[in-house]
Design a protein around this nucleic acid. Sequence first.
DNA 1: TGCCAGGCCCTCTTTAGGGCCTT
Length: 206
Amino acid sequence: MHTFVVIDFETTGLSPAHGARPTEIAAVLVRNGKIQDSYQSLMNAGVYIPYMIEELTGISNDMVRAAPKVSTVMQEVGEFVGDHPLVAHNAAFDKKFLDAEFARLKIKRRQEFVCSLLLARRVFPSAPSHKLSALATTLGLQGAKRYHRALADAEVTAHLLLHIKEALQERYRLPHISHELMLALQNVPRSQLAAYVAKYSAAKTI
DNA sequence: TGCCAGGCCCTCTTTAGGGCCTT
């Protein structure tokens, strides 16, 4: 997994099925362990941002009103992402917004998401919390002085994924962690992680 | 009118409930 793209959405709510739309997105390209490129933009979906969410993200209705149309931004995101493997923290959330916005543009997502939340729960089970900001503190990750802005969160998630990857490599003495293995591990029960990695490694070396 | 997510994961579980995580 030498190259991947981390995605983070800020939105007007929790569910696109109930009318929530994106207000901001960031995509961060990581190659060979370093952030090499990034895309970020506010976007205007013509949907009111509730006061509570304005307070949470600092993204106001005025800011979004002056931003590019959501269709323009999502088209650019599609081009930036390309076929690279995708990563997000609690990927189920970002995936459903990405798919909902892509569907409006008749764009089809071509790759699966690796979820840094699912992996962190398995690799660092004793962390006091697995929310992004808490993991950043616990693990001493490089990153954000603030949270709940798309680029800051995407950058911290990139460092988190790299940290998880290094921990797995060190713990199981693996020379390389593939996207395929990360995708599999996020769904393996925590108690079976070591056994799964051993079986996977053996199969790959035969 | 009032309400409104959903999937993971643990446990005092599996004929279920509730906390966590994303905004």
